[in-house]
Design a protein around this nucleic acid. Structure first.
Lengths: 221, 221
DNA sequence: TCGATTATCGTCAGAATGACGAGAAAAGGA
DNA sequence: TCCTTTTCTCGTCATTCTGACGATAATCGA
């Protein structure tokens, strides 16, 4: 039996919330094709490597992070003939949601790496579309999963969690109704008993993520 | 630059509702590996073919269907090294939801094809897991999208739509509350003005799918 | 001490939900 | 023809959820 030959890459849509706005991790390409253009981080899948393993490896290379912090899930695959001038390349895109981190470290074959506010266009390959799909997935999943906590550090306030929703959905949310909803939805967040100190305003109780995998009922956008 | 070489296939999780139960389209393999074993329909992606095009082609080959009926979406990619004894094969799985059809036609390299109630195990490759992921995706999407209509013919009754939910979720639903919910959720279904004839019981109004892409508020499981 | 700021708790009307009653409109058999 | 069965469709009602907003609590910085 004969069949066409492909190369397989993983690309990452790494999202975080910085300064109240959704940001994506971009790298400036250090080799052809699209030399010098901004792109999603990614690379070829190794010979005996699982797809998820490859995604986690790339994530570690780009962010210096390897712990189980944040969230990583498969986003989808993109295989248009002609999407890569080097030949037939299928990419498996992954979506990562991370708490705000120190500045990224430029990886091996990237000239630079930075957090960019989402909305920038003109990325290499079909990365504009992959990014748009990733953002849409994130927006959608905040509704019916507790994934917003993936954008937060291990301990966080309800106000910080609300900030995530406001940044991802792009609009203000009533603090009082949000507080009620977040604290009464079973399994969403659990109080740790500690509180913030030294912040402006009244001290806020600290919470950690709960055990739920789905929000019931969902947050309404 | 050198990188590993892959083959890429598409596999289909084709679901339908028959006799009040969720069924999946399976084929009996007519060639190695896993000769004679039941598997999800699928095949290699052609040299200059898009992934979605390949999925639609395979769907047409297996069901004889090529129209826009039903629903087709990408489910996810599976690329464990060793998932295929022939070498490094990544498969892109698609999920198709179709109205009940006449018996399937066995495709080119399939010995047989049939609708099997979901739950059967022991499929070839990693198809048990892909099938489970597809069923879970379908269950989940019925909640917050109008996708249940993809299981129905162009015109259907509220009772038939309820039958889809009962089959996919596996439990009885109160007909009166469901009727209210389906007919008042904006964009879910629209009356065609016609009614059923010759069925037992009171004639039912016929509906077609509405324009909504998401149900607001969602159906509760 | 005095705002400014943020967190947290309450209230209240309107909407949505779940449980169920009741009638409408057909088919099929006695 | 009349009755039974079946399924659809419309209502009712108590409970819960939601959105809008008032009020108070607890800190910081001037």
């Amino acid at each position: 039996m004969s069949y066409p030959v492909f190369a397989v890459t993983v690309d990452l849509v790494v999202l975080t919330v910085r300064d109240g706005a959704l940001h994506v991790l971009l790298v400036q390409r250090g080799c052809e094709p699209y030399l010098g253009r901004w792109a999603l981080p990614g690379g070829f899948v190794h010979a005996d490597e699982d797809l998820t393993t490859a995604a986690r490896r790339e994530l570690g290379e780009e962010t210096g992070l390897d712990g189980p912090a944040g969230h990583l899930e498969q986003l989808g695959s993109y295989g248009d003939p002609g999407r890569d001038p080097r030949g037939r390349v299928v990419t498996v895109a992954y979506l990562a949601l991370l708490p705000d981190l120190p500045s990224p470290t430029a990886g091996t074959d990237a000239a630079a790496a930075e957090w960019a506010p989402i909305g920038r266009r003109g990325l290499a390959f079909d990365h504009d579309r992959i990014l748009a799909d990733g953002v849409e997935r994130a927006r959608s999943k905040l509704e019916y999963t507790p994934l917003a906590t993936a954008f937060c550090p291990p301990e966080f306030t309800i106000g910080a969690l609300r900030g995530v929703y406001e940044a991802v959905w792009g609009g203000p949310i009533d603090p009082r109704n949000f507080h009620r909803k977040a604290t009464t939805t079973p399994g969403f967040v659990e109080p740790t008993g500690r509180s913030t100190e030294g912040e402006p305003g009244r001290p806020a109780r600290l919470y950690q993520r709960g055990e739920a995998t789905r929000l019931n009922p969902p947050m309404s956008r």
